[in-house]
Design a protein around this nucleic acid. Structure first.
Lengths: 238, 238
DNA sequence: TAGTGGTCTAGACCACCCA
DNA sequence: GGGTGGTCTAGACCACTAT
């Protein structure tokens, strides 16, 4: 909350959410905002770029920054969100069960994908997520033990990301994801309430730290009727 | 190709693709690049931000811009890509069949979502996509007729986006997407080679022009075994 | 300590939109 | 023509990483 442009971004988000700036209208011009926040125009522009990237506004040359409607979709913040954040946002009751938490020394293909030493140990973590009394999601993680040394059943049941970012002070930076649909496995049958479904939606992701090291591979298997993914894509600009 | 930072971005991409800068190494420092390209540091930073947004590099404070590996996933350019671009990238033989191309005056719920006048007409376009001899994808579009007046069977079979951007000179800006899995309909059964599948992956999207007007709603229905979505998410920064 | 990227400033000129 | 956002410059100071 220190960066000036982040502070300004947050203030503008609040005003949009409160309806002080409402959809369809334009924000005050960059020049005006520069005066209001007593800063430079480039700083204002950084704040506005953040608003645009998060789908709050769209900038139109010669016209202004138009406030967009944000309600047609509920946005679970496109991209990097932990399961817990998502569940909290949805306001649903969620129960996580840890089925396996072990150290493995095999799985060299995953070790290679993560780009870590051949002798590195990996955590193997299997969790199911129960929402409204049904086990709907199966999360299977491989996590580098040399980077994240202490994982307990308790942290795995709570938020792993919170532990990594807050307690270990590591910064999670980006993730590559793949979404496909696959036939169910015996493991799915055992650990999920499939309700007759024969396929699951599989999200595979590699998660990277701020120093470019990959530390986690996750396979998240969702029952199709309870799966939703929302995305907000825009043409890339600087 | 006029903007200085875009030109620099393209030159750096080429060098990375040629392996002149290879994965794991760092690019020359911003200071150095400023001298090399005879420009200001902020301009170099814009080019580097583009590289980062497109997954070519990751910047690490105090260290440099690290070149990332780009081959673990094939990236079909996250976000806004037309079907034709995608198919071209994959190098697959694709055949598009137009099943319906009409003007509708009902469908007021879609008209409301698009935020267009109640009396506006909408194109209704239904196409199937055949890849390797199988009809795998069913695309159902609603398009504002007041913005895109002339759609022929031929343009619908070729690239609609090419027509909109190149011929009409409209700039497509961003899209909101939702991905879910649904049971098949009679229409799916009729127009797709489902190969026994009982569900399809449905991508619903609203597509916006640069002036913030929504002009298209698309429902793209994919046979699950042929569906893949790749995403490259990063923490948002300015 | 030297070098890196991150932020911030105060100007400038341009392309575009609208009255 | 006056206002808008888009680009670009030439500095400055800071936080971080390496050695």
């Amino acid at each position: 909350m220190k960066n000036k442009y982040v502070v300004i971004f947050n203030k503008l988000v609040k005003k949009i959410q409160q309806g002080i700036f409402s959809a369809g209208e334009t924000l005050p011009s960059e020049h005006e905002l520069t005066a209001q926040f007593d800063t430079s125009r480039e700083t204002i522009r950084k704040a506005l770029n953040l608003l645009a990237q998060n789908g709050y506004i769209q900038k139109v040359r010669g016209k202004g920054s138009v406030v967009l409607e944000r309600n047609k979709f509920k946005f679970p913040v496109s991209g990097l969100t932990s399961f817990k954040e998502l569940a909290d946002q949805m306001g649903q009751e969620v129960k996580t069960s840890v089925h396996e938490l072990t150290i493995v020394t095999q799985a060299s293909h995953i070790r290679r994908q993560l780009g870590c030493p051949e002798d590195a140990k990996l955590w193997r973590l299997i969790r199911s997520r129960e929402i409204d009394g049904e086990r709907i999601i199966l999360d299977k993680d491989f996590i580098r033990e040399d980077l994240i040394p202490d994982i307990t059943k308790e942290t795995a049941e709570q938020s792993l990301y919170h532990y990594i970012e807050e307690e270990l002070g590591l910064e999670i930076s980006f993730a590559k994801k793949e979404i496909v649909v696959e036939d169910i496995t015996d493991e799915d049958r055992e650990l999920l309430d499939l309700n007759g479904h024969q396929q699951v939606v599989v999200i595979r992701s590699y998660v990277y730290l701020a120093d470019t090291t990959a530390f986690q591979f996750t396979e998240s298997r969702h029952r199709p009727d309870k799966f939703q993914f929302v995305d907000f894509a825009r043409r890339m600009k600087a």
